[in-house]
Design a protein around this nucleic acid. Sequence first.
DNA 1: GGCTTTGTGTGACCATTATCACGAACGAGC
DNA 2: GCTCGTTCGTGATAATGGTCACACAAAGCC
Lengths: 217, 217
Amino acid sequence: MNQKEEIVQLLNRYFPEFEEPLRQEIMLHAHVRKIRAGQFLMKTGKAIDSIPLILEGIVKVSREDDAGNELFIYHLESGDACAISLVCSSRQNKQSEISAEVVEDVTILEVNIFNMDSWMMKYPTWYRFVLGTYQRRFEELLNTLDSIAFQKMDERLVKYLKTKAETLNSLNLPLTHQQIAQELNSSREVISRLLKKLEQRGQIQLNRNEIRIIDLF
Amino acid sequence: MNQKEEIVQLLNRYFPEFEEPLRQEIMLHAHVRKIRAGQFLMKTGKAIDSIPLILEGIVKVSREDDAGNELFIYHLESGDACAISLVCSSRQNKQSEISAEVVEDVTILEVNIFNMDSWMMKYPTWYRFVLGTYQRRFEELLNTLDSIAFQKMDERLVKYLKTKAETLNSLNLPLTHQQIAQELNSSREVISRLLKKLEQRGQIQLNRNEIRIIDLF
DNA sequence: GGCTTTGTGTGACCATTATCACGAACGAGC
DNA sequence: GCTCGTTCGTGATAATGGTCACACAAAGCC
């Protein structure tokens, strides 16, 4: 079958550590879903009964508060799972929400929560994958915390640009100042001025809707 | 045996959800350790080969950067496990460290990492406990992130005082302004001024080395 | 081409927080 | 009692970042 074939190939490529019986189960029980850039992986307020594994594409995970403020946390890419969906599924969120926006068209595998639990007991590679996911996300979250707590906006901006460049795998970032300001929970003018400084130092080059990284490393 | 008896009692009280065979294993393989207030649970840079379960006492978990800045994240209490030690064990930390300082004398159970993994497969209550720990800590971390990202210092201070009051289970907080400033990564003067405002509004009462909460809720 | 929308540059000003300086109040120990 | 170290109060000043106002440029649309 066409779709099964595709899953096999993608599993091979992005989850090579999974043992054969686990792959069989995944093929049997997981659903493939494709989501276009701009859409959201998780609808806020909706109960979460499945965990998405990212096969292809990029997802931007942010925190949003009730006043419309946003804060970029990290990206999800091929081979990642959305750990946060597990966390959020447990309770109704009080004030803040997690948003998971697709920035490059994604193909995901949806694994039912019920399966997820039973596989933990049966498949060591799945066990290691899930715990590893928690650990990596925890670290990234701590990293984000560090940035906000200890760094000034100029440092945060540079770090942000580096992260974007790495994830998008390109030195040309298709971003507006407004977008950046939003993801760093700052204001457009502040970001514009800081970017200007970076340009004057020859570290980046500014064009409309684009930032070209020259020497940030 | 004396110590075994004590473990049984404490397990009953603080981990009532554990099934009997699991308790037996814990008694066989875990070590009890008592640590006095002021000491640190984790020595920075030391490899972590066991996970601490808190039986009694309170531990303060903070993030510290290389410049000596600190940021309070959350408390660990009876029935909690130190999820972060798992995270930190995996890699050598780059720039920031987690510190876990004992604020009220603790009794902990040290569970070897090897045991931890094998129990996950055998005991559903242990499995749920570990995953639940990750989830709760994740939520708390997100909560902390929110505070720094979206709140101003006065709001953060109020939230901090509430948290301390709840954890210490007392309306008398034995804190100096300097301590608070450090845990919120601010400066003593700022905290003093904000506290003064709260006092003028009748919400707290200030004494040397003590803050008495009157009406913060 | 002209009009509109969107993105960017920039000066002025304000709010919050950090830093410096210094003195007063308190408590422990003698 | 006195002394000394710690804690707290407070004014002055600076730095960072947020807000407002407005000009202008680039891209899209009719």
